[in-house]
């Protein structure tokens, strides 16, 4: 028994040693849930480019989970060389813990965001409720599925987009926006905690008439559950949801990986990297690459959280903090 255990341990150690010997360096990207597909394509492409340039073999490790949960893990000591999140707030949180320089958004192009997505509507085949824009969502009898804005990125963006839409209508003001969003959430039968939960509710449990979620998730649902079962509705206004990236300065320096991590990020902004984002249904930040794929990414009027709500920290404080506007709206509905 004891001998067997020793053998198992020795074998395990040998496997670990072997995998370490294969690669000259190992880097870790701590990332959000749905980015797995993108990095599955990006990482081999970058590793190959890096090998060609330096002759060094890289092992690129991935960790995926809820964006905020992942940020928390990095703060608690998950030693990521780079992080890729779906909200700048999460990288800000890591910066606040002293692991990333506070000016991280200025270090790379497009506010350090190589790709972005936007909120679209997914309706059932034939669009039986005739949904075309935000104002159709508040009509009585329409059931919409939105994940909880307090716990999920999709939910926050959907909420802010609805708010901004109401504000931009003729005669729109803060009070009217609040009424509009209240009416909207009155039509939400269940608040799932995350985007994937909302997808399951809509697609697998067949609850609701409309699902509000990211463009890449919409495409994925069509792929997984059948393209002919749903229709995409592009609203007149939506929000630009950035997927920012950053080096985790402290850990990358500790591992001696600063140059490699920088190259990994630079690759994501290169044309080759941008094409990979586009192929995975994320909108590339490079306008040139984006316009090349304009048939897959229809143009729509967009606003950013920074210009419309004075930045994420501000929006978070007013709308999503405990006792904030969302809590009041949800209780009043």
């Amino acid at each position: 028994m004891k001998k067997k255990l020793l053998h198992t341990l020795a074998a395990a150690a040998a496997v670990l040693a072997a995998s370490a010997a294969q690669a000259d360096a190992t880097l870790l990207n701590v990332s959000y849930d749905v980015a797995r597909g993108v990095y599955k394509d990006l990482n081999p492409a970058f590793a190959e480019a890096w090998k060609k340039k330096t002759g060094e073999t890289l092992k690129l490790d991935q960790s995926h989970g809820g964006s905020s949960k992942q940020a928390r893990a990095v703060i608690d000591g998950l030693e990521a060389d780079i992080v890729s999140m779906n909200s700048p707030l999460d990288i800000d949180a890591i910066a606040k813990a002293g692991l990333i320089s506070p000016d991280w958004q200025k270090r790379l192009p497009y506010a350090s965001s190589p790709s972005w997505s936007t909120i679209l509507f997914l309706v059932r085949k034939g669009n039986p409720k005739g949904i075309k824009d935000w104002n159709d969502l508040v009509k009585p009898g329409v059931k919409l599925i939105i994940p909880n804005p307090k716990t999920s990125g999709n939910g926050r963006y959907s909420y802010l987009a609805a708010w901004q839409y109401a504000l931009r209508q003729p005669g729109g003001n803060e009070a009217k926006a609040r009424d509009f969003v209240t009416a909207l959430f009155r039509n939400v039968p269940v608040l799932d905690t995350g985007g994937r939960g909302a997808t399951t509710t809509f697609a697998q449990r067949s609850i609701g008439d409309v699902l509000l979620t990211f463009e890449n998730e919409v495409k994925l649902i069509q792929q997984e559950f059948g393209a002919d079962k749903y229709e995409i509705v592009t609203p007149s206004l939506s929000v630009r949801a950035d997927n920012p990236v950053s080096i985790v300065d402290k850990y990358a320096a500790k591992h001696g990986n600063k140059a490699r991590a920088q190259a990994w990020l630079d690759f994501q902004f290169s044309e080759a990297g941008q094409e990979i984002f586009a192929a995975n249904d994320l909108r590339p930040s490079d306008e040139k690459v984006l316009s090349k794929h304009s048939n897959r990414f229809p143009k729509l009027q967009l606003f950013s959280v920074t210009e419309a709500f004075g930045g994420w920290p501000q929006a978070q404080k007013i709308h999503f903090a405990d006792g904030g506007l969302f809590d009041q709206i949800y209780q009043a509905r």
């Binding site: 849930d33 490790d61 991935q62 960790s63 995926h64 992942q70 893990a73 994925l220 997984e224």
Partner: peptide, 22 residues
């Protein structure tokens, strides 16, 4: 765990990840 694929995922964690990825 930290959920690093191929390193710190146990079987139950791997099941959850695969399921969430359809």
């Amino acid at each position: 765990s930290g959920h690093i694929r191929g390193q710190t995922n146990t079987m139950p964690l791997h099941v959850e990840i695969l399921y969430n990825e359809y």
